Amino acid sequence: MTTVEEAAARSAAGSHTGSGIQWWRIRAGVSEVLRWVLLLALGIAFLYPLLWLLSASFKPRGEVFDNALIPKTFTPTNYVEVWDQLPLLAWLGNSVFIALAAAFLMTISSSMVAFGFAYFRFPGRNLLFGLVLATMMLPGAVTLIPNYLIWKFFGALGTNIPLWGGALFGSAFYIFLMRQFYLGVPRELFEAARIDGCGYWALFRRIAFPLTLPSAIIIFLFEFQASWNNFTGALIYLNFGTPENFTVPLGINYAMTKYSPTAGGQGDYQYVMVAALLVTLPMLILFAFGQKYFIKGISAGGMKG
C-alpha cells in the first residue's frame, strides 16, 4: 500500500471513530434528558396531592372539589376563619406534646436496652434478644385489647397517657437498630473508660450515646412521625371527652364529620383543607432540621451493614 493509500485509510478510520464517539454522546445526552423528564414527572406526581391541598385551602365552599390547581375565587380568609371554626391550636398543642414525649422516651428507652444487649455479656443474652425481635412479628391488632385493658386498670382512659406511656418500654425495631450501632463502637473505648473509673451509666451517657447520636435522631424522627399520625390510638383512648382534647388526626376526622351534609353540616370542607395543610408544617420543619442527621445515620448504618 502506498503512502497515499495509507493516509486515506487512516482518515477513513478516524472518520468512523469520530462518528462513533459523536453518536455515543448523542445517546448519552438523550438518556440524560429522558432521565430528568422521568424524575420530574415522578416529582410532580408525588407533589400533586400537596399542591391540590394548598389550592383547595384558598377556595370557597362551592369550589373545594373542582380539581383546579389555580383557585377561581381566591379566598385567603379561610386561614383566619379556621381558628374560630375549629380548636386547631388545642389539637396542635396536644399532638406536639404527645409526639415529643413519645419520641423522647422511645429514644432513651430503646437506646438503653440496646446498649445492654451490645455491651453486657450474660447467659441467655442471644435468646432474650431473639424474643425481643420476635415481638415484631405480632400484628398491632393482637395487642390492642390487652393494652386497652392495662390502661383501663390504671385509670388512664380518656387521657393522653396511653399515647406516650408505652414508649417507656422501647421498641424491638429501634432496639435492634441501636444495638447494631453500639456493636460498631470499639470495645476498647469502654474498657479504657472503666479503668478511669466510669460506671455503666457513664459509659452509656458519655461514650455510647454521643457516638451513635445520628441513629438516635433517626429514632426520634421516626417515632415523632408515627406518634403525630397515630389516629387509631387517639380514637381508642381520647374519643370520650371534648374536641379540645383531640389530637390532630382525630381532630381532622371530627371536622370531616362536623361539616358533612349527612351529619347536618354545610359542607365547609375548606376549613378542613386549611387545618390539614397547617398540621403538616411541623413535620416538614422537623425533617428540614433533621435531614442531615437522617442521611448521616442511614449512610453509617449502610457502612456497618
Rank of each mutant, 00 (worst) to 15 (best):
T3H: 02
V4G: 04
E5V: 12
E6Q: 15
E6C: 00
A8N: 09
A12G: 00
H16C: 06
G18W: 10
W23I: 15
I26L: 10
A28F: 06
E32V: 14
L39D: 05
P49R: 02
L51C: 03
W52C: 03
L53D: 04
L54K: 03
K59E: 07
V64N: 13
D66R: 00
D66W: 04
N67S: 09
A68V: 05
L69S: 01
L69A: 01
I70N: 04
P71N: 09
P71V: 10
P71K: 06
F74R: 08
W83T: 15
W83I: 13
L88N: 08
W91K: 00
G93H: 00
A103S: 15
S110M: 03
S111D: 01
M112Y: 10
G124Q: 12
F129I: 07
P139E: 14
A141P: 00
V142Y: 07
V142G: 05
P146K: 11
G158F: 06
G158L: 07
L163P: 02
G166Q: 10
F173V: 00
Y174S: 07
F176P: 01
M178K: 02
M178A: 15
L183N: 15
L183V: 00
G184L: 02
P186T: 10
I195M: 14
I195K: 05
W201V: 11
A202W: 10
A208Y: 11
F209S: 10
P210H: 14
L211K: 10
T212P: 04
A216G: 12
Q225D: 06
N229D: 11
N229I: 03
N229M: 07
F231T: 01
G233R: 09
L235D: 05
L235R: 05
L235V: 06
L238D: 11
P243H: 11
N245P: 00
F246S: 07
I252S: 09
I252W: 05
Y254A: 14
Y254Q: 15
T257C: 02
Y259Q: 13
T262F: 05
G267L: 04
V272D: 04
V272P: 00
V274M: 01
A276E: 02
V279F: 05
T280A: 12
T280Y: 10
F289A: 13
Y293Q: 09
I298Q: 06
A300V: 07
A300G: 12
M303L: 15
